[in-house]
Each structure stands twice: as structure tokens, then as C-alpha cells.
Amino acid sequence: MDRTVTVRLHEVAHARTGDKGNRVNVSLIPYVEEAYPLLLEQVTEKKVLALYQHKGASGVTRYELPNLPAMNFVIDDALEGGVNSSLNLDMHGKTLSYLLLTMEVEVPAKFALHPPD
């Protein structure tokens, strides 16, 4: 029961992106509420910044909402100059929530929707 698995965040949490100017926010909401403390430990500002750095991200702020529970990441400069000047097909960064969900985490199998054998 307590077997630990390495899975992508997509197995453990869901997310949505919103944009304002040259910032995006990405929410991160665990499917199982008990997974929240583990995600707080593993999904750090530093790791999130590394994931978005190739897009020009310059900083990440993580906000905590313990009662939902959920996290909210605000990523600065992740839109290649912002919605005004981005030439990305997705100028708003709407697809970027699923970039966060590619991060690997180690969690008890019971927190993953489809734990590997």
C-alpha cells in the first residue's frame, strides 16, 4: 500500500493557466487532498522556474491555498515578451499548464490516478 512511485504531476494533480500581460499563473490542484503536503515539498519555485526557463521565465512565486487545497504559481516573463509581442502560436500561454504537469514527482501509489505496476 505504501509503495512509492515516480510519476508525472499529471497523474497526481490538475492545473489551469491564466494570463495577464507577460505573466502567467498556473494553478496546481491535487486529485487526492492528502497529497498536498508532498506536492508542497516537491513542486518548488526553483523547480518550476527550471521548467519554464527556456521560454524566458525570470521568476516564479508560489502561493498556497491550504483550504482548497491548491497552489498557484505566478511565472514572470514566460510569454516571450508578453501577449503583445509573442509570436508563439499560443500567445496567451494557455497550453502551459500541461508543461507543469510533465514534472516528475515521487508519491505513494495511492495518490496517482493510474499508478505504474
Binding site: 490538475h14 492545473a15 489551469r16 491564466g18 494570463d19 495577464k20 505573466r23 499563473n25 494553478s27 490542484i29 486529485y31 512565486t61 502561493y63 491555498l65 482548497l68 491548491a70 498557484n72 505566478v74
Partner: peptide, 16 residues
């Protein structure tokens, strides 16, 4: 609960 949580944080920066 999940649909409401996702929308609650949509386009939110500092939630406070």
C-alpha cells in the same frame, strides 16, 4: 469541487 477550484484560481495572481 474540482471544476470550481480550477476556475477559482484562473487568472489569479496573489490570491490574497
Amino acid at each position: 469541487a474540482r471544476t470550481v477550484k480550477e476556475q477559482m484560481l484562473y487568472e489569479i495572481h496573489d490570491p490574497s
